[in-house]
Structures are given as structure tokens and as C-alpha cells.
Design a protein around this nucleic acid. Structure first.
Length: 525
RNA sequence: GGUGCGUUGGCCGAGUGGCUAGGCACAGGUCUGCAAAACCUGCUACAGUGGUUCGAUUCCGCUACGCACCUCCA
């Protein structure tokens, strides 16, 4: 199995990935708090960890991927003083909190499905693990790192920090943290401002509440991930991912809770995906500068010049490394859209070339293959039994380059740069200016099947599917065959009007015809 | 105020102590009845400033600007 390197936030360095159990990976990723539509920012970790999971699986690991849904305990403004986000939304919309949760969970699933993000193995909800969370609170109390205050339980950060280091992940020390923390106005039940709630007493008007040894209340936000991670992945597991903004305090608190409740930090590799910015500023709910995914897909937002397809978004994200910020702009999205189309067009041509050469694709079946909407005209490209050594070398170099890049901290932009080299080679071969051997074609198919469609999870959105697609294919073939005859005549008579007329008429229907050497090809918008 | 990160060509974005991705845009060319596509060529950038070095965009220092976290945020 190929070595995979990944940047571990704990060490701030790229480390070789060694799973706890050979051949198996436990992965936990912080999912959304479902009180609103997912925005472009949510697409980033969605796609990033999807690629990680696909890559691990492709490399041969069995992966258990847990991604939670936060449906209780996440408070606004101040982690311990604000109103529950879900409850607030429910109050404003006059709905049951669980109606809000259900609605936005479904909408989140739909957005992820459109982005071709594979669903997690387990998708636990905080509200479904109240019992486990109460048990964890008891353990933390027993360890001495928490105290009860007026019906709520708080984590005693100072005491914990004396024995362990509160700040191992975010790289800060408690004194520094203290400096920037604003003072509380004596209203708080907390002993210190940096203490955080692991169980919160429910005020009389609070809707979501559960009985506990300390009275009716609800769990603190940070606790759910500790508890659900342990329940489904064990005391210690391999990878924990999330957005960079969750590093502190959320993930830091998680580590502290793990140590306090089960005596281990729990996670071997912490992975963080960076933010998407807009005009250089973080896109976020609190800043109000976000564009939701449904808005992006529909083009309905005053910052959008057009609609952007889910795959355009996915490709846009893939073109940047996950640890860097990525700036949104219409120009950048449009560039992504065009680049993606070029790759997809090359994929179709590659499969046609390979098919003509009798290449059997071994790895078909991953998912998301473009329907082979084939063009009129056969690719009768002559296939040499063995091509020049130089070409073989380049194809091989692309293959190696792609794997090297992906295994080097998931460097998707570099991998894509190699893919574009492949695109160029395919196009050249299509123009008959280059002869690819059967082996070369097989290798290229493997790259597209396994990597472009498999690991990167791209798919051809233009490819039509189903029975109507078959009908269209057949009709188009008839139309273009007829036009080809007209065209042959036109070559003699120099009267191209009929020929162009057909093409214009098709264009009006959204079908673009391109006259190539081997005949005409078409694409539908 | 504390902590950390960044500043790359028209735009987006990689990367490296010397050979200096890729996409998009732009210009020229080839092909083509035209169109489109494709291919070829061109565009050589690393904020400023000192230092280390035979050599720095890449290492170190300083300056400027920007960003993130320290409240909820993917």
C-alpha cells in the first residue's frame, strides 16, 4: 500500500499516516448545525473529507466515516450564555425544534448529494446520544475536572491545565487565552471565563431539555463530538477533521474532555480544512456574507453573475489545496467551469479512443462515470501495438505524478495539473497527431476512472442519462448522418447554406455541433 | 492586546535553494468551407528591505499590508 502523508495539526507538520489497526481507518468529521442552509463554506470540508475518504478507500483501507449532525446544544453568541441556535430558529418560524432539524438535515443531504459527496458510514445526532453524554459528564466530574454550579456542569480548565496542557492543538497557553477573553458581568455561574459548559441547566422557557442527575438540562456543544466519536470509533481513533475555525475552542475542548473522561487525547491525526473567503474575508454566518449552496446552484444571489453547477463548485475547491484559504469570485468560478468542461470533454474522447482500440476498462464501477454519450463518427485512430517509448514515459509520469500528489497531503491542485497534461495528450491523439498504445490508453482510462471520477469525485453533468437520453442519442445520430450527406454535397457545390442551417437550428435547441476530422460531435447544454 | 498564518504574473492558484505547476484570460500561428474545438508559440511573477549562500521567490531578520482565532461559525 502506498504511503500517505497528511498534515497533523497537533504537530503542525506533514506526517506519514499510520493507522491504529492495519488496513482500517476511523474518521470523524464535525458536521453541520442544522438551523439553516449549507453555504459555500460548508462545501469545503464536505468535499475535502470526501476526497480523503475516497482516497483512503482507493488505497485499500476500510474506512468508517462518522459525520455528526448537531441538533442540540449549540448556542449563539457566547458559548454558554446565548440561546440555542435550533431553538431560536424554531421559535422564529413557530416550529418544533425537530422540524427545523429535519428540514435542514434533508436540505444538507441534498446539497451534499449534488456535490457528489458520499454519505458517511454513520451520521449520529447529538440529541440521540443524551444518555451517553450524561455518562461522560459523570466521568468528567469523577475525574475532578468539572464542577457543578447552579444546575450546570462546567469544565474546570485551570485545574485541567495544571495537570495537562490546555492548548496542545491550537498552540496557545492559558495565560494568553485569558488576556483576550472579555470579562463576564457577574451573571455567569462559571468560575472562570474560559471554563465551558458540558451540561447546561435548562431555563423554564427552554424547549429542548432532558432529565439528568443535576436537574433538567441539555448537553454542551463540545461534548457531543467527544462522546459520539468514542462510541462509534473507540477510545482512540485515527483521524478527526473539521473546519479550521473549529480548532479553538471546539476541538481543544474535545481533547480536554477526552483526557478527563477516558484518559487519552483520543485522536491521532487532527486535520483542518481552511476557510473560503469572499473579498478576502472569511465567509461566515455571523458576518452575513455567505452564499448558500442552493443559491449558488440557482444563481440567485446579488453577488452571483450566473449559476454555478455543483461540479463547478467541487472542481473550484479541488483546484486549491485544502489547507489554504480560497477566495470566491465570479471570475474564479467561471475559470473553474471552463477547466472542468475541458476535462470532461477529454474523458469522453478518451473512452471513445480506448473503446475503438479494444481497451478493456478494468476499474469501471467506482461511480460517477460519464454516460458514454458518443458522438457521431468513429475514431478509427490507428493503434500501434507498441508506441514510441517517449509517449509511454509521459503517460506513466502522469500516472505517478497524480498518485504522488494525492498521497502528499492530498495535493489535489498538483494532481489536477497532471490531469490537464493527460487532457492535452488525449486531444493530440484525437487529432491523430499522436499515436497512443493500448497500454497508454488503458493507463489513461485508469487515471480517469480511478482518480478523476473515483477519488476526486467529479462527474459529467452534461451527460444525459436514462431512456430519453438513448432516444436523443439515436436521433442525433440520424440527424448528423443526414447532415453529413448534405455536407458531402456542399463540398462539391460550395453551397453551405443547408448545412449551416441544420447546425443553427440545433444550436437554437441548445445543442452545439462541432465538425471534426472524424465527423461531427455534439454536446447538449 | 495575545497567538498564528499569509502577501506569487490580468484573475484563480501550486511549488521549489539553482532546471522556476496548472487552469482561466490575452496575443500570434496551425488546422478548418465557416463556426467551434483542439494543438503550437508568446506573456517568467514571486510585497519591500537587510542578511546567510557560489546562487533565494524558496532559509533568517526587520518593515508594510492583509487575514484567522482568542464569542457562535465549516
Amino acid at each position: 500500500m502506498r504511503d500517505l502523508y497528511i498534515t497533523n495539526t497537533l504537530s503542525r507538520t506533514k506526517e506519514i499516516f499510520k493507522p491504529i489497526n492495519p488496513g482500517r481507518v476511523g474518521l470523524y468529521v464535525c458536521g453541520p448545525t442544522v438551523y439553516g442552509d449549507a453555504h459555500l463554506g460548508h462545501a469545503r470540508p464536505g468535499v475535502t473529507y470526501d476526497v480523503l475518504v475516497r482516497l483512503l478507500r482507493h488505497l485499500g483501507y476500510k474506512v468508517r466515516y462518522v459525520r455528526n449532525i448537531t441538533d442540540v446544544g449549540h448556542l449563539e453568541h457566547d458559548a454558554d450564555e446565548g440561546e440555542d441556535k435550533i431553538a431560536k430558529k424554531a421559535r422564529l418560524d413557530q416550529l418544533e425544534p425537530m422540524e427545523v432539524v429535519q428540514n435542514y438535515t434533508l436540505r444538507y443531504h441534498e446539497a451534499m448529494r449534488m456535490l457528489n459527496v458520499a454519505p458517511p458510514s454513520i451520521e449520529p445526532r447529538a440529541s440521540g446520544h443524551i444518555v451517553e453524554q450524561i455518562e461522560a459528564v459523570k466521568k468528567i466530574l469523577a475525574s475532578g475536572y468539572a464542577y457543578e454550579s447552579n444546575g450546570s456542569i462546567y469544565f474546570d480548565v485551570q485545574k485541567y491545565n495544571a495537570d495537562h496542557h490546555y492548548g496542545v492543538l491550537s498552540g496557545r497557553n492559558l495565560d494568553d487565552t485569558l488576556e483576550g477573553t472579555r470579562n463576564l458581568d457577574g451573571q455567569s455561574d462559571k468560575r472562570a471565563p474560559y471554563d465551558f459548559a458540558i451540561w447546561k441547566k435548562a431555563e423554564p422557557q427552554h424547549i429542548m431539555r432532558w432529565p439528568s442527575p443535576w436537574g433538567e438540562g441539555f448537553p454542551g456543544w463540545h461534548l457531543e463530538c467527544s462522546v459520539m466519536g468514542e462510541k462509534y470509533l473507540g477510545h482512540e481513533f485515527d483521524i478527526h477533521g473539521g473546519g479550521m475555525d473549529l480548532m479553538f475552542p471546539h476541538h481543544e475542548c474535545e481533547i480536554a474532555q477526552n483526557v478527563a473522561s477516558r484518559g487519552t487525547r483520543g485522536v491521532h491525526y487532527w486535520v483542518h480544512s481552511n476557510m473560503i473567503t469572499i473579498n478576502g474575508q472569511k465567509m461566515g454566518k455571523s458576518l452575513g456574507n455567505f452564499i448558500t449552496l442552493p443559491q449558488l446552484f440557482a444563481g440567485e444571489h446579488d453577488k452571483l453573475e450566473q449559476a454555478y453547477s455543483p461540479m463547478t463548485i467541487r472542481f473550484f475547491i479541488l483546484q486549491a489545496h485544502y489547507r489554504g484559504t480560497l477566495d470566491f469570485s465570479n471570475e474564479a468560478l467561471q475559470a473553474a467551469q471552463k477547466g472542468l468542461r475541458r476535462i470532461m470533454a477529454a474523458a469522453k474522447d478518451l473512452y471513445a479512443l480506448a473503446s475503438a482500440a479494444g481497451v478493456e476498462r478494468t476499474s469501471v464501477g467506482t461511480e460517477g462515470h460519464p454516460a458514454n454519450q458518443m458522438s457521431y463518427g468513429e475514431f478509427i485512430t490507428s493503434i500501434a501495438p507498441e508506441s514510441s517509448a517517449a509517449e509511454n514515459a509521459e503517460v506513466k509520469a502522469i500516472f505517478d505524478g497524480v498518485y504522488d500528489a494525492l498521497c502528499d497531503d492530498m495535493n489535489t491542485p498538483i494532481a489536477l495539473s497532471h490531469i490537464f497534461d493527460a487532457v492535452r495528450i488525449i486531444n493530440t491523439a484525437k487529432d491523430r497527431k499522436l499515436v497512443l498504445s493500448k497500454n497508454d490508453l488503458a493507463t489513461l482510462c485508469q487515471i480517469f476512472d480511478d482518480i478523476v471520477f473515483g477519488v476526486m469525485g467529479l462527474r459529467d453533468e452534461d451527460a444525459s442519462e436514462g431512456t430519453s437520453a438513448k432516444v436523443i442519442d439515436g436521433l442525433m445520430q440520424m440527424v448528423l448522418e443526414t447532415r453529413a450527406e448534405v455536407r458531402e454535397q456542399a463540398k462539391q457545390t460550395k453551397d453551405w447554406s443547408k448545412c449551416d442551417q441544420i447546425r443553427d437550428a440545433l444550436k437554437a435547441l441548445g445543442i452545439t455541433v462541432k465538425d471534426g476530422k472524424e465527423g461531427a460531435t455534439w454536446t447538449i447544454e
